[in-house]
Simulated scan of single mutants.
Amino acid sequence: MTHILIGVIGPGETASEAEMQTAHALGEAIAQAGWGLLTGGRAAGVMAAASQGAQAANGLVVGILPDADVTQAAAVDIAIVTGMGQGRNVINILSSRVVIACGLGPGTLSEMALALKLGKPLIVLQPSGCLLETLSDLSSTPLVPVATIAEAIAATRRYLAE
C-alpha cells in the first residue's frame, strides 16, 4: 500500500513558538486524515513540531535529512539521509503530493519556489500579503492561501480528489 505523503515546510531554528504550535496541530491533523507526513526531519522548528504532532496521532512520519547523519532525525519513523544539504529540498517537494507551508524562512522560500516550478499544489498557511502576491505572480500551478488548519486539510482533500 502506498501512503499519500503531505509535505509540511517551514523555518527550522528561527521558527516562532506560534509557528511551532501551529505545525504541531497541523501534523496531528494530517495524521488524523490518514496521510503520511513528510518533513525535513531535523530536530528543529516546524519540521520537529509537525513530526511530533503526527506521531502523537499515531501517524507515519518521513524525514528527509540534509546530511548523512541519521542522529539529526527527530520524531520520524523513516529517516532518509541524503548528504545533499539544501539540495534535499527537491526530494521534499517531489515526494509530497501536496505541500503546506507553515511560516517562512530562506529554506522554506526555496521549497515554495520549487513547488511552484515543479507543479506541486502549494497551500500557504496564514501568509503575509506581499508574499502571497509575489508567489501568485510567479505561479502557474495551484496556490492556495488559508487561514486555518481546517482550511488547509480541506484544500488538501480537494487536491487529492483531482
Score class of each variant (00 low, 15 high):
Gln55Gly: 07
Ala23Asn: 13
Ala79Thr: 11
Ile93Trp: 09
Ser136Val: 07
Leu132Met: 11
Lys120Val: 02
Gly36Thr: 08
Glu162Ala: 13
Glu111Val: 00
Leu38Pro: 10
Asn89Ala: 07
Ala57Val: 10
Gly83Met: 03
Ile64Leu: 14
Thr71Phe: 01
Asn89Met: 05
Leu38Lys: 12
Ala115Cys: 08
Glu162Leu: 05
Gln52Phe: 00
Leu94Arg: 10
Gly85Arg: 08
Ile78Tyr: 01
Gly103Val: 05
Met112Ser: 05
Ser16Met: 10
Ile149Ala: 07
Val8Ile: 10
Thr39Asp: 00
Glu17Pro: 14
Ala152Phe: 02
Ala79Ser: 11
Ala68Ser: 15
Ala68Ile: 12
Leu38Thr: 01
Leu114Gly: 03
Ala113Asp: 06
Gly10Gln: 10
Ile64Ser: 09
Arg97Gly: 06
Glu13Ile: 13
Asp69Met: 12
Gly103Gln: 08
Asp137Pro: 00
Ala54Gly: 09
Leu135Val: 04
Gly63Asn: 07
Ala31Met: 07
Arg42Trp: 01
Met1Ser: 15
Leu118Cys: 06
Ala74Ser: 10
Ile9Thr: 14
Ile6Phe: 00
Val144Thr: 06
Ala150Cys: 09
Leu65Ser: 13
Thr2Glu: 09
Asn58Leu: 11
Ala15His: 13
Ile153Met: 06
His24Phe: 10
Gln126Leu: 01
Thr71Cys: 03
Trp35Leu: 04
